[in-house]
Amino acid sequence: MRFALNQMGFPAEGLESNAELLAEAGYDGIEPNLTADGPLWDDGAVDAFADLTDELGLDVPAVSTTLHWDRPLSSPDEETRAAGVEAGERMIAVADALDAGAILVVPAVVDEGTPYDEAYDRALDSVRELAAVGAEAGVTVCVENVWNDFLLSPLEFAEFVDEAAEAGPVGAYFDVGNVRRFGRPEQWIRILGDRIERIHVKDYRTDVDTIDAFTYPLEGDVDWDAVAGALGDIDYDGWVTAEVPPYRTAPERMPPRVRSDLAHLFS
């Protein structure tokens, strides 16, 4: 396994400072997020970041974003949906420049104005559109399971990935903690099998029924032995990226501690 930290947990300001901190903490990779006004929209900044990660011996497992909550790929509004596709296309370009090989997308948001069946069809079209672009760049479009009231079973998740992959490289970015709310991650892992291209990890407390249930690995109710066993069963030996926030106090202490826990769980 190779270990990385998502930008959600960066303890310092700026990609450069955090890259240096993660390299010092022994991480193999750093996972940046495309934000609305962040540096990843600037080609020069992306090139500089690529040079720095090479110098530090870090790789980029994927490029992620939260923009698809505001610009859903399933939106009934064509302009909003097009903005989401545009963000995905930029992520592919950045991933190509950083040799990341993958992007993370939230495929849909189901709400009062977006019925499930319509969200499915529009999300499928959008992900297929991105997959065709990704095919040209050698970048896999990875669909993540999140709290979006969509793809609520591993069987449906697998079917969606398979349907989208007809247009180009599409896989699953499987988030262990996100599933524990309504299922068992180890079961999802075995069903998704080799569709899984990347792994996000965080823990989840089943006695808390809000977003506050998320916590750091080893502090919740995920059966990590079962998760590691399931990953072994499908011969997964790729990226494991922590997606957790920095500590409120002494935030710089979180990355090395989580890195140590990842090695304990998966090495």
Rank of each mutant, 00 (worst) to 15 (best):
residue 2 R to Y: 08
residue 5 L to C: 05
residue 6 N to R: 13
residue 8 M to P: 07
residue 9 G to S: 06
residue 12 A to W: 12
residue 13 E to S: 13
residue 14 G to N: 00
residue 15 L to F: 09
residue 16 E to Y: 15
residue 18 N to A: 08
residue 20 E to L: 11
residue 21 L to Y: 01
residue 21 L to P: 01
residue 22 L to E: 03
residue 23 A to M: 09
residue 24 E to V: 00
residue 25 A to V: 10
residue 30 I to W: 04
residue 32 P to V: 04
residue 37 D to V: 08
residue 38 G to T: 04
residue 42 D to S: 02
residue 45 A to S: 07
residue 48 A to H: 03
residue 53 T to K: 15
residue 56 L to V: 11
residue 57 G to N: 09
residue 57 G to S: 05
residue 57 G to V: 06
residue 58 L to F: 08
residue 59 D to A: 12
residue 61 P to V: 14
residue 62 A to H: 13
residue 65 T to H: 04
residue 66 T to Y: 10
residue 67 L to D: 09
residue 67 L to F: 10
residue 68 H to A: 04
residue 72 P to D: 02
residue 73 L to F: 00
residue 75 S to A: 11
residue 76 P to Y: 06
residue 76 P to D: 07
residue 77 D to C: 03
residue 79 E to N: 13
residue 83 A to Q: 15
residue 84 G to E: 07
residue 85 V to G: 07
residue 88 G to R: 07
residue 91 M to K: 06
residue 91 M to D: 05
residue 93 A to E: 15
residue 95 A to L: 04
residue 98 L to C: 08
residue 99 D to F: 08
residue 100 A to R: 03
residue 101 G to N: 14
residue 105 V to Y: 01
residue 105 V to R: 06
residue 106 V to L: 15
residue 106 V to W: 12
residue 107 P to F: 01
residue 107 P to W: 00
residue 109 V to L: 15
residue 109 V to T: 14
residue 110 V to I: 00
residue 112 E to G: 14
residue 116 Y to I: 07
residue 118 E to G: 09
residue 118 E to T: 10
residue 119 A to K: 04
residue 119 A to C: 08
residue 121 D to V: 11
residue 124 L to P: 01
residue 124 L to V: 08
residue 124 L to Q: 06
residue 127 V to I: 13
residue 128 R to T: 01
residue 129 E to F: 05
residue 129 E to D: 11
residue 129 E to W: 00
residue 131 A to W: 04
residue 132 A to C: 04
residue 135 A to H: 02
residue 137 A to Q: 08
residue 142 C to Y: 04
residue 143 V to I: 15
residue 145 N to Y: 03
residue 146 V to W: 13
residue 151 L to I: 02
residue 151 L to N: 01
residue 153 S to P: 10
residue 157 F to K: 10
residue 158 A to E: 09
residue 159 E to L: 10
residue 160 F to Q: 04
residue 160 F to Y: 04
residue 170 V to C: 02
residue 171 G to S: 05
residue 172 A to V: 11
residue 172 A to H: 06
residue 175 D to Q: 11
residue 175 D to V: 09
residue 177 G to C: 06
residue 178 N to V: 00
residue 183 G to R: 10
residue 184 R to D: 11
residue 185 P to Q: 00
residue 190 R to K: 08
residue 190 R to M: 01
residue 192 L to T: 08
residue 193 G to P: 10
residue 197 E to I: 11
residue 199 I to L: 15
residue 206 T to A: 12
residue 207 D to A: 09
residue 208 V to Y: 09
residue 208 V to T: 13
residue 212 D to M: 11
residue 218 L to T: 15
residue 219 E to D: 12
residue 221 D to R: 12
residue 221 D to Y: 12
residue 223 D to L: 12
residue 225 D to Q: 15
residue 228 A to K: 14
residue 232 G to T: 06
residue 234 I to Y: 02
residue 236 Y to C: 02
residue 238 G to L: 00
residue 238 G to P: 01
residue 239 W to P: 01
residue 239 W to I: 07
residue 241 T to V: 03
residue 242 A to D: 10
residue 242 A to S: 13
residue 243 E to P: 08
residue 247 Y to D: 13
residue 249 T to R: 12
residue 252 E to V: 14
residue 252 E to R: 13
residue 258 V to G: 06
residue 259 R to G: 03
residue 259 R to K: 11
residue 262 L to H: 05
residue 265 L to A: 05
